[in-house]
């Protein structure tokens, strides 16, 4: 399916409408989708496809994925959450995950930003330096 420039522009306008305070209003997003579907126009599908992509990117931008070799204890999770909220502001969804292949340390990803303090990343950097 080809998403035209016009469809992209309209999807972006709708997406902006869903950010009343700079944060995504999920109810508004749902309403937008319902209204566009109800309009039943020819280009509603490309608009919604692009709208969905923008929502996905927004979600990724506001989700912090914290990975560690073993699941972090609750107190450490709280500290990490506090630090991230301090750095990225409110509206950040936290997701803690266990990844044994990291060997040790922690890897945090918020949108495009990655803080990799895992043992595996260190070893990879060492390998590259050789």
């Amino acid at each position: 399916m080809k998403i035209t420039k016009k469809a992209k522009r309209e999807a972006k306008q709708l997406y902006r409408f869903c950010l009343p305070n700079g944060l995504l209003d999920e109810n508004r997003a749902r309403q937008v989708v319902e209204r566009v579907v109800a309009r039943d126009e020819r280009d509603c599908l490309p608009i919604l496809t692009h709208f969905l992509r923008l929502l996905k990117l927004d979600r990724a931008q506001h989700t912090a994925i914290v990975e560690s070799a073993t699941l972090l204890p609750a107190d450490l999770q709280k500290i990490v959450q506090g630090e991230l909220a301090h750095r990225y502001g409110l509206g950040l969804t936290m997701a803690f995950a266990q990844r044994p292949e990291l060997i040790g340390g922690m890897r945090i990803q918020v949108g495009c930003d990655v803080y990799d303090g895992s043992v595996r990343a260190g070893l990879e950097a060492l390998q590259r330096s050789f």
Binding site: D113, V114, D116
Partner: peptide, 9 residues
Amino acid sequence: VTAAKQNVG
């Protein structure tokens, strides 16, 4: 030990 910030895509 510091974890440098990287920008990924």
